[in-house]
Design a protein around this nucleic acid. Sequence first.
DNA 1: TATGCTATATATAAACT
DNA 2: TAGTTTATATATAGCAT
Lengths: 167, 167
Amino acid sequence: MGRNKLVMKKIEDPISRQQFYSKRKDTILKKSNELAVLCDTDVALLMFSPAGQLLMQSLTQSKSEGKMVGKIAIAEARGKKLNELKETLIEAQQKIRYYKPQVENISSVQEAEAYAQFLRSNMEQIQQSKAKLLGVQGFLQRNEYPAVNTEDTAAAGNVSSYLNAYW
Amino acid sequence: MGRNKLVMKKIEDPISRQQFYSKRKDTILKKSNELAVLCDTDVALLMFSPAGQLLMQSLTQSKSEGKMVGKIAIAEARGKKLNELKETLIEAQQKIRYYKPQVENISSVQEAEAYAQFLRSNMEQIQQSKAKLLGVQGFLQRNEYPAVNTEDTAAAGNVSSYLNAYW
DNA sequence: TATGCTATATATAAACT
DNA sequence: TAGTTTATATATAGCAT
């Protein structure tokens, strides 16, 4: 779009890349939100900015029928370079398997941590949904998540008021 | 866009809603992919179609620096109405907590299952990244994920050839 | 780093097939 | 009911601030 046609190739200039990311990110979030609202469905986004930050966003529309109750949540947490994340266990009564990423290097660790955080927030949301269904909303503590980027959290505000209940 | 301006309100007609979802979904995926390629970063999408299907997509660009190596993966799995998903344990050596959703109703269970599947695919990706870094690619088994919607899996193909390595 | 501007590229709501 | 066309709404690239 714009003056020139888009070239599907990595933008080498760091500054231009960051600017591109910044702009397009907003559009994608906007469109995702439109989809969530118009279709009354759930959408979650997880993206890394060129700077290495992680943007996690869940856009959810509570179904009138009570199906997949949800909320919109956006959070951008700075990627912490953790030294290691030895094990990650995921167990569910239904066909659950064990995954042991055993991440050794910083890159993977960073990624693993990002995902772990994403998982945490999502699990939290599942609890929220349950709570909502049980009419016991608002019992979860806020600000329980570290490294939340206040700036982007604020930006999330105009996507949905529901969002702030989390971040 | 188009002849009329968009109204931010749920589309009540099921057919129109499904059509809207179908079109918009593609655009969002396209734009997300553009972002992933141009910025050489990682993007993950998780969305539920009005029909209740789950679309999970991770768009990743391998960093030249070796940071957050990744791939693009799309999968749409039909939401199975599981009777229960009693427990979900997520543990990581770093500040890991235990979440026990204890989902009782179908709605939450469905959501929980969807998330669990999303988590599984992501954890798998972490392993993939590690494998790639170690030069031991392609050792993961394919088609290990149940309920994958072939149709959307195919659609994912034109987003990135890398994608097919998974689905 | 964020806005604002303007020409163009895209996306898409409706209509049409 | 999906694919194509058309008119219009949006998004945005390149600049300037």
